[in-house]
């Protein structure tokens, strides 16, 4: 495992911790898209079924369990927690995420490494992860003002993707048989979706002002 991959995993972990911190400390999930969180839970459940079939390392297995558990916990809090669920911006979070699920499933049935149950689910999870942030970005755009922790959450999620791209470039040059083009193409799409957000994030950081997205 190279440094970029490790930094990618760590920024991913930090983003989840920031989200949990926000929900725990403020007892609020305003500005957070439940649809995006549900998609992530689905992504992790579909991809990490290989916990039962393939063992790579203790690190990998622990991270997989952490990602599944934390994403389910977040969804549970937003839907069921007596206090937290009241702050959910339901009327702003109207992205029709079922279409994303259907489109990604169709694509996974057409394009995958091998037509087996686990491989289709794996490709599905990769495609879905690439677009899972869309409901969140739409929600932020609609609400205009982005609170500090929510902004940091999305920033770290984007940083995770950027580090993964560096990781693939590194692997491409250092490993002889590294070819995982489904991940790489999807990863590039996913990172590109953050470009706009990053632009406004850096502007607000440079001007030391509150993060605001144009309507």
């Amino acid at each position: 495992m190279n440094i970029f991959r490790f930094l990618g995993d760590m920024t991913h972990l930090i983003s989840i911790l920031i989200l949990l911190l926000k929900i725990y400390a403020t007892k609020s999930c305003s500005g957070i898209s439940l649809k995006t969180q549900e998609l992530y839970a689905l992504v992790f459940l579909a991809r990490y079924l290989d916990l039962f079939t393939d063992f790579i390392s203790v690190y990998n297995s622990v991270m997989k369990v952490v990602f599944i558990a934390s994403s389910l916990a977040i969804v549970w809090c937003m839907r069921r927690h007596r206090v937290v669920r009241r702050s959910y911006d339901k009327e702003l979070d109207t992205f029709r995420h079922y279409f994303l699920v259907a489109a990604c499933l169709a694509l996974a049935l057409l394009v995958q490494e091998k037509f087996t149950f686990l491989e289709v689910l794996w490709a599905f999870s990769i495609y879905l992860e690439a677009v899972a942030i869309l409901p969140q970005l739409v929600l932020l755009q609609r609400s205009g003002n982005v609170d500090n922790l929510t902004g940091q959450y999305v920033f770290f999620l984007g940083a995770y993707r950027a580090f993964y791209i560096l990781n693939w470039i590194y692997r491409y040059f250092t490993e002889t048989h590294f070819s995982r083009w489904i991940s790489c193409v999807s990863g590039l799409v996913q990172t590109a979706l953050y470009a706009d957000f990053f632009y406004y994030y850096f502007i607000s950081w440079k001007n030391n002002s509150k993060l605001q997205l144009p309507a």
Binding site: R5, D9, H12, D50, D54, I56, S57, N60, M63, K64, F67, E113, K114, W122, Y164, N167, H177, F178, S179, R180, S183
Partner: peptide, 10 residues
Amino acid sequence: QVQAPPKDEL
């Protein structure tokens, strides 16, 4: 048929 590399990323 080339064996696909293991899925070692998260």
